[in-house]
Design a protein around this nucleic acid. Sequence first.
RNA 1: CGGAGAGUAACUCAGUCUGGUAGAGUGCCUGCUUUGGGAGCAGGACGUCGCAGGUUCGAAUCCUGUCUCUCCGACCA
Length: 570
Amino acid sequence: MRWSNLLIPTLKETPQDAEIISHQLMLRAGLIRRLGSGLYTYMPLGVRALRKVQAIVREEMDRAGAQEVLMPVMHPKEIWEKSGRYEGLKNVMFRVKDRQDREMVLGPTHEEIITDLVSREITSYKQFPCNFYQIQSKFRDEIRPRFGLMRCKEFIMKDAYSFDVSSEAADVSYQKMYDAYVRIFKRCGLHAMAVDADTGDMGGSSSHEFMIPCDAGEDAILEADDGSYAANLERAEGICDLPMVFAGAELALAAVETPAVGKIEDVAKLLEIETRQLVKTLIYVSDEKPVAVLLPGNRDVNEIKLNKVLPGAELADPEVIREVTGAEVGFAGPVGLDIPVIVDRSLKGLKGGVIGANETDKHLKNFDLERDCGITEFVDVALAYAGDLAPNGKGRLVEKRGVEVGHVFKLGTKYSEALGANFLDENGKSHPAVMGCYGIGVSRTLQAVIEQSNDKFGIIWPISVAPFELLITVLSPKDENCMQKALDIKTILEAQGVDVLLDDRQERPGFKFKDADLLGLPLRLTIGERGLAKGEVELKARTDKDFEAIPLDQAVVKTFEKITAMREAL
RNA sequence: CGGAGAGUAACUCAGUCUGGUAGAGUGCCUGCUUUGGGAGCAGGACGUCGCAGGUUCGAAUCCUGUCUCUCCGACCA
C-alpha cells in the first residue's frame, strides 16, 4: 500500500482532549477520530491494527474449539426480561423502539441471546461440550466514557459462551478459554496477568480478569510479591498479620471522655494510640434492618464483599444511627448494641481495643472482643491493602494498576435455567446446561498495546498487531531510480506475505522520519539517492537506535529475515 | 448524577477581567528556493467566537438559559 493512497492524518501537536499516552498517540498517528463522547471512527490504519488483533483472537478461539457465530446487535426486550437483567442492567442498556413501538435494546452482552439459541438447538448430551463466539460491537451507556477506546459507549468485543453437561466439564471449558486468553495476549505483545475477580452483574461462581499492568489502568490490583496471588482490589483478600493485642489488654472496660471527637483519626490522636487499635463500628441497613459492621479503625469496608453477606446493604442515615446507638454519629460501639453484629476477620483476637460507648462524647477502652462481646465468628468484609499478607500467608501484597482486557466467568446454570437451555442425559433426564462466558475487549486491547509500548517519539507496535509490518521510506520519490527500486522491493516482499507501507509522499526526509516514528511500524527500510549511489539501503527496527546499511541486492532477503525473526519472537 | 475545567480558523491556543474593525503559530492552496530527523521567503483561502435569548449606540467580551467536550468519583470488556 502506498501512503499517498491512505488517509493517515498525523498530528504534530497533542489534541487537547486526550489525557493518556495511548489515546494521544492513537489520535496523533491518525488511527482514530472522535465522533462524540465514547464514540470513535477507526481510520484506515486503525482498522488494519484492529483486524490484526481480531485475527489473533479468531485463530486462538478456533484453535480452542470455539465456533464463530454472529448474533443480532438489536434484541427484543422480552428475552432480557426472562433473565431478570432487563431490570438489572437497565442503567447500561441503550433502548430503542421500532415503528410498532416495540421496545428493543442494543446488546451490551449476549448471554441471553446465545442461551436462547442453545435452548432450541442443543438438546442432547451428545452435542456437548460446545462453545460459541462472536466479534461484534457492543453498546453500553457508560456513566463516563474515558480515555479514547478504553471505555466507550460502543466498542468491539469478542464474547464466547461455553455449554457443558456438568460443572466438572465446564471447568475444562473454562480452563481452555483461560489458556487461549493467555496465548492471545501474549501474541498481541502484551504482558497480561490473570487476577481473581468479582463476577458483578454477570453472576456465577468465579472469574478471572486479564489485566494489562499500567499506570493509566482504571482497576486496582493487589499482587503478592512472590507472584503466588493476584486479585482485583474489589475481590482481594488480605491478611493483616499484626497481633491485635494492645496495652490494657488485661484490664476491664473503662470509659474515656472524648468530647466532640468522633472521627477515628481524631480519637486516635487524642488518646495517643494507633488508628487500628480503635474499632470502626459502622451501621448499615440491609433488608430495612440495621446491622453493625466492625472493622479495625485503619480499614475500610469492601462493599462488594459486604453485599455478599448483607444483600443490598447501605450505610445508615444519621437518624437511624442515633436511634440504634443512642449517640451521635462517631460514638457507636458493639457493647450493648441490640442489633446483629458482623465482625471483620482482621479483628480476630482483639484485646485492648477502643470502641465507641454508644454515648455521645464517650469511648470505651480495654475492649476485648471475645470477653466483652462473646464474638467468635468472623467474615471478610474489609478492603485488602498493600502490605497485607496474601491469603496463602506467604507473599506480601503490592498494589498495581491495570487495564482489564479480558474477563472469564464460570456462570453455572443461572442463564440456562432462566431461558430453558436444558438437555437430556443418557438416562433421558433433563438438566440445565452449565455455562461459562468469556469476553475480550478487542478495541480496548488495541489501545492497551499502545499504552504498554511507546516512547517519546510515538508508538512501538509489536509486529503481530502493527497496521503494517514494514515501512519503506522513499526519500526522493521524484527520483525514478529510487522509486523503482522501492517498488521492486515492495512487490517482492508483498508477494512473500509481508504487509508493506510505502511512504511515497513528496516531503522532506526529516518530516517523513518523524511520521515514521510516530506510526511506529516495527521495521523501516529507507531508500535514498545518497545510499543508492553506494548501492545501499538502510534497515532500522523501530526499537533500534541506528540503522544498518545493507547492500541493495540483499535488501529483500535481509528485510524478510528480520520480519520473520520479529514474527517468531511473538 | 455530584465536583472541577473547557468551548474562538482544520489543529494548538491568545483575546474575555476593563464591551469599540476577530488574532498568532501550525496545517492547507500558489510560486520560488531548499531536500538525511517535523525547512525558508513571498503571496493566498478558511470564523454565524457552541447555541438561544437579554442588556447596550455597540457584545467573543456583561447577564440568563441551554448544549457539547474533558478530568475526578459510582459502572464495566
